[in-house]
Design a protein around this nucleic acid. Structure first.
Length: 553
RNA sequence: GGCUAUGUAGCUCAGUUGGUUAGAGCGCAGCAUUCAUAAUGCUGAAGUCGGUGGUUCAAGUCCACCCAUAGCCA
């Protein structure tokens, strides 16, 4: 650990304000939160921003269906999202909304700059229109027969049966899913962002950045196919920000969504009397990272960097792409009860289990991650309760009962303790690279070493022999110090376990700097179970409740 | 349909630029132990590395095709 303090800001993708947070969202939020907590515990200045993505047609229509204003809807969902994330110990520095004053300012100034530089073009296009509802229809609100395989009830952009894509006008017998009317084609003037003009800038950015190889490969494909202009406007009625100087035209939700990262940051910094420019100006020295799912790469690796560059802002330092979550090897399914909402999980299970399990399976790549429920239970119990917490559990009794909670004065095995401290380097490197699975394997290998150490010295035998009190005390104290080091390493993943452990050891919050200073001659508290085991019936209850939610909705 | 990925022991995953008998954890079996939330330690069984062909002295690792899965096609 050096004195070079980095200035970093990090985001998770904005959840859409039209539904609940589910474990798929949490995969990303947990991966991000672990990284942020890791940076903080290492002494860096790191901010974690997120917000609700509150605009677009689906939200407008949902609000209408409920008979409330979109503002009412998104305020309710915002509160719910905040609560759910907090339940999983996601430590946002700010969780804001794209429907905010700050975001409107960003959208307007960025657009105005792009327009002044000639990056915005206008063109009239033909689009499906619902004559009953009197609105243009997004592709997913048009349904019909697939032109290729003739499957019924397919969306306007692609067929779920044969997986092919097409234009909504190709659908056979199209129907508006808003009103049931047959849509008609209608002309409208749209605004386009001239993405192709940024090709060389983006190529440079990609070469300079350190994108994951899979991501770079995908980008190559898009470059080879040729970049296309991006339609950034939508016609009224639309819930969003109106485009300056264009009455009745609104920014497409994906235009102002990433700007929401900045809005959230600005909202936070304004409260603290700090200037957002230090983070977002073209010459900013701060690092900026986006954690996103593989489905929204295009927006974050092409549109967003181009928009930033075109409007005189800095570009992202990197974009970290992860895969999707499957449950027991399959897509999350409402009927199987594996479409698990954050709230449903929290009703029965400790968030730390999921945090650990996701960490144990995150390799830093774009492959999908499977939540295997059986493996989940066994892995969490074996690793966290059986290995890590057990170290404290099996030594604390001796210290408490025989030495009134007082730790020994001498480290019984200096070499082992040094080995634990030294392992921090590679664990930190893995965390930095988001290879949490590797980090967890390293930590569990240390936990094995600690248990072997206890087995080798058999405190329960020494305890029965006269005149060996110092030895007993020092062995148990050493093991507890090994445990303390493991807790430092696990703290970004398991803040709750860390907090319980700090209370048990009766110490201040641990940080990476505490590694090399062992606890000696120190009085600890009575040991209480630091983490309960995962019970099978609780997992079953989550699945059952997830099925029930299906019936209610 | 095109593209980018993924497919390794029952389960979840590692496998660097191709090179001796393919690794780990969980689970399982046996033994030991009883300090600990039936936790721990030791030993062991278990894989024709998705399939078929090919390149090579040598391929889980390279090439072609095929199959399955995920995402993207703005």
């Amino acid at each position: 650990m050096t004195g070079d303090q980095r200035k970093i800001f990090v985001t998770s993708a904005l959840p859409y304000a039209n539904g609940s947070i589910h474990i798929g969202h949490l995969l990303e939020a947990i991966q991000t939160d672990i990284w942020v907590r890791f940076q903080k515990i290492r002494g860096h200045d790191c901010l974690y921003l997120c917000a609700d993505d509150a605009h677009g047609t689906p939200i407008m229509l949902s609000a209408e269906q409920e008979g409330v204003t979109p503002e009412t809807l998104i305020a309710r969902v915002h509160a719910e999202h905040q609560r759910d994330y907090a339940g999983f110990e996601i430590g946002f520095d700010n969780f804001y909304t794209t429907h905010s004053r700050e975001n409107r300012e960003f959208a307007e100034t960025i657009y105005t700059r792009l327009n002044e530089k000639g990056y915005i073009k206008r063109r009239t296009i033909k689009q499906f229109y619902d004559p009953v509802k009197e609105m243009f229809l997004p592709d997913r609100f048009i349904r019909g027969e697939c032109p290729f395989c003739r499957a019924q009830e397919q969306y306007g952009d692609s067929c779920e049966a044969c997986n092919r894509t097409y234009a909504p006008t190709d659908l056979v017998n199209p129907v508006s899913s808003v009103s049931g009317a047959t849509p008609i084609e209608k002309e409208s003037e749209h605004y386009f962002f001239n993405l192709p003009e940024f090709e060389s800038v983006l190529q440079d950015w990609i070469r300079a950045g350190r994108l994951q190889p899979e991501v770079a490969n995908k980008l190559d494909e898009w470059f080879e196919a040729g970049l296309k202009e991006w339609d950034i406007s939508r016609d009224t009625p639309y819930f969003g920000f109106e485009i300056p100087g264009a009455p009745g035209k609104y920014f497409y939700v994906w235009v102002d969504a990433p700007m929401g990262y900045f809005a959230s940051l600005k909202n936070l910094l304004d409260r603290e009397g700090l200037d957002v420019a230090a983070f977002i100006a073209a010459d900013s020295a701060a690092e900026m990272y986006h954690f996103i799912g593989k489905d929204i790469m295009y927006f974050h690796t092409l549109f967003w960097p181009a928009v930033l560059h075109g409007s005189n802002h800095r570009m992202p330092t990197n974009v970290f792409v992860h895969g999707f979550l499957t449950v027991d090897g399959q897509k999350m399914s409402k009927s199987r009860g594996t479409f698990i909402n954050a709230r449903t999980y929290l009703d029965h299970l400790d968030p730390e289990y999921l945090r650990y399990y996701f960490a144990a399976k995150s390799g830093g790549g774009v492959d999908d991650i499977d939540l295997n429920l059986n493996d989940f239970q066994q892995r969490v119990n074996a690793d966290l309760v059986g290995k890590v917490v057990n170290i404290a559990s099996r030594c604390a009794g001796f210290i408490n009962k025989r030495f009134a909670g007082q730790l020994g004065a001498v480290v019984h095995d200096e070499g082992l303790l040094e080995e634990f401290v030294a392992a921090g380097e590679s664990i930190a490197a893995s965390c930095e690279a988001r290879e949490y699975a590797k980090a967890m394997r390293g930590i569990m290998a240390l936990a094995d070493r600690a248990n072997q150490y206890i087995d080798r010295h058999k405190p329960w035998v020494i305890a029965k022999e006269d005149g060996r009190d110092d030895e007993l005390q020092n062995i148990c104290s050493t093991a507890l110090n090994l445990f303390r080091i493991l807790i430092i390493y696990l703290k970004p993943v398991l803040p709750g376990l860390a907090e319980n452990s700090e209370a048990f050891l009766d110490i201040q919050p641990l940080s990476w700097d505490d590694l090399s200073a062992p606890l000696l001659n120190h009085r600890i508290k009575k040991f209480k179970p630091l983490l309960a085991r995962v019970e099978k019936d609780k997992i079953d209850a989550v699945i059952e409740d997830s099925k029930e939610n299906l019936l209610i909705n």
